[in-house]
């Protein structure tokens, strides 16, 4: 049994050596001096080898870790299993690299340069004939503003002891979470509460108690004030905002905390 295994292991490493030599021949290509593809320690192959080995390490470590946990293996066995998983990861990486060698070479030598050339050509044509130099930044800005708004539309993850009092109230959704509105929406929301209601103007309001800091719209101007965690003793930190920004809304009744 041991002899058979020994022969199998020897045959495996012999075959691996032959494949290594054959793959090595294909590497002995002329080196163009300008592109600098010289034998170096930080070559494309070394980096690929490192990345693939890391991936294989993660793939191999998971089942071994699970097995060690499952059988409640003693220290010595779990140490051996750990070493074995590292060894198998390198073997797997070697096998994968041998299989994808041609694909990797084709990708780096042909497909990526071709894609880069196409991208450059398309960009040049677009800038020259389709006014991309102004259209693309404009589209990017629209996309950025859209993402920003989508993020700000989400309710704030703040826990408050109370969301309303006798002469103050936060704008909340059905679930009782703080909603974020633009300045005009905030003003409209507050004036809807009554004639003497308006946006928060900066006085202390110890009744408000939050578990983390957040911003609320503040009048006058377009600025937001930070509500600190704990009993709110009035804003210390302010942030300049634009009319499109969204913040939580605290409405107060005049003559009260305003």
């Amino acid at each position: 049994m041991t002899v058979v295994w020994d022969q199998k292991v020897r045959a495996y490493f012999r075959e691996k050596r032959i494949q290594r030599i054959l793959s090595f021949y294909s590497r002995l290509q002329p080196v163009p001096r300008l592109t600098g593809r010289r034998a170096s320690m930080v070559s494309r192959d070394s980096i690929m080898q490192l990345i693939v080995t890391f991936i294989c390490l993660m793939i191999c470590a998971a089942p071994f870790a699970a097995l060690t946990k499952l059988i409640k293996a003693p220290m010595v066995i779990s140490l051996v299993l750990g070493g074995l998983s590292a060894f198998l990861a390198v073997e797997l990486a070697d096998w994968v690299l041998l299989k994808i060698r041609r694909a990797v070479d084709l990708t780096f030598d042909f497909i990526l340069p071709l894609l880069a050339a196409i991208l450059i050509a398309v960009t040049v044509v677009g800038v020259k004939y389709f006014n991309w130099s102004t259209v693309i930044p404009q589209r990017f800005e629209e996309w950025r503003a859209g993402v920003n708004e989508r993020l700000q539309r989400r309710p704030l993850a703040v826990r408050l002891r109370k969301t309303s009092g006798a002469d103050w109230m936060f704008a909340t959704n059905e679930a009782g979470q703080l909603t974020q509105l633009t300045l005009s929406e905030a003003e409209a929301f507050c004036s809807k509460q009554g004639l003497d209601w308006g946006l928060y103007a900066g006085t202390a309001q110890a009744e408000i108690s939050a578990d983390r800091a957040f911003y609320i719209w503040m009048t006058p101007g377009t600025r937001a004030a930070q509500v600190d965690p704990g009993a709110f003793k009035g804003p210390q930190v302010f942030v300049s905002s634009s009319a499109q920004d969204r913040h939580a809304v605290l409405c107060v009744r005049s003559g009260g905390t305003r």
Partner: peptide
């Protein structure tokens, strides 16, 4: 097996000591 071993070593060595050839990742360099 021995011949293969020494042949591979000679190939690797030749390329580890040279800066002209592209070689597969080898710790030798």
């Amino acid at each position: 097996d021995d011949e293969l071993f020494f042949y591979e070593d000679s190939l690797l060595l030749k390329n580890e000591l040279s800066t002209e050839f592209r070689i597969r990742a080898s710790g030798g360099r």
